[in-house]
Amino acid sequence: MLNTVAVNLRAIFRDRVFHGIVVVALLFLLIPSVSSLSMRQVTELSITLALSLLSLILLLLSISLGATSLWKDIERRYTYSVLSLPLSRSAYLVGKFVAVALFLLLATLVLGAVACCMIWLASGIYPADRPIVWMNLVLCIAADLLKYVMLVAYAFLFSTVSTSFFLPIFGTISVFLAGNASQQAYDYVHSPLATTLSPVVKQAASVLYYLLPNFSAFNLRINAIYGIPLSMKAVVLPLMYFCIYTTLLVILATVIFTRREMK
């Protein structure tokens, strides 16, 4: 499987997407000057901008790499030559997934470091009222990474059942939007404000809430921006949620892909 991971990482580094991301990452350099436009909360704004830009880049990477990685192999008929090697379908699929996840990790480490440098520069020029809690910032970035790796698992799942790029790309975008709204929708449906909703709708909302990913669990931005202490529970529970949910998605994708016919 390591062989598959290595060759897929090489594919990503030689892809145009990688070069595009490097160009977009240059926007990080603008953060201190853009943050200075806020006269009062320069540090907070720089953290917000840095985290948002990092999140946007990871989202673009997750969709572009996750949703097209498998599809490209099938579309360009690489699968005929690769899957005829003594390599199990599961090793092939998991290898590809690990390669994308590793690349996201690498991108997060590099861009996260650049983001922290920019935040440090901005805070040095305009000191904040509250000190920056760097650990919160690191945990917030790590949680974002987990969210996007989970999204990649969804993209792979869609790729295993689809014959075109349509479902993997738009399905993944839909899951991203739904995953970010699922907690709010659930809270609303079970709040006193939703008394007019029928029990069937409430039940359906609950089922969807448990089926769809809950990306709100990975949102630690408020803690990072305002230096609000993080509880152990707020870190460990999302991590466990990520491990279980992503594992299930990858297993499901592997089962489907193993049965898929390479016509």
Partner: peptide, 18 residues
Amino acid sequence: ARSQVGFLPENPSFYDFL
């Protein structure tokens, strides 16, 4: 079974970034 086989597909296509 595939460990003892060399397979050439019809109109082959290989990882072209390599």
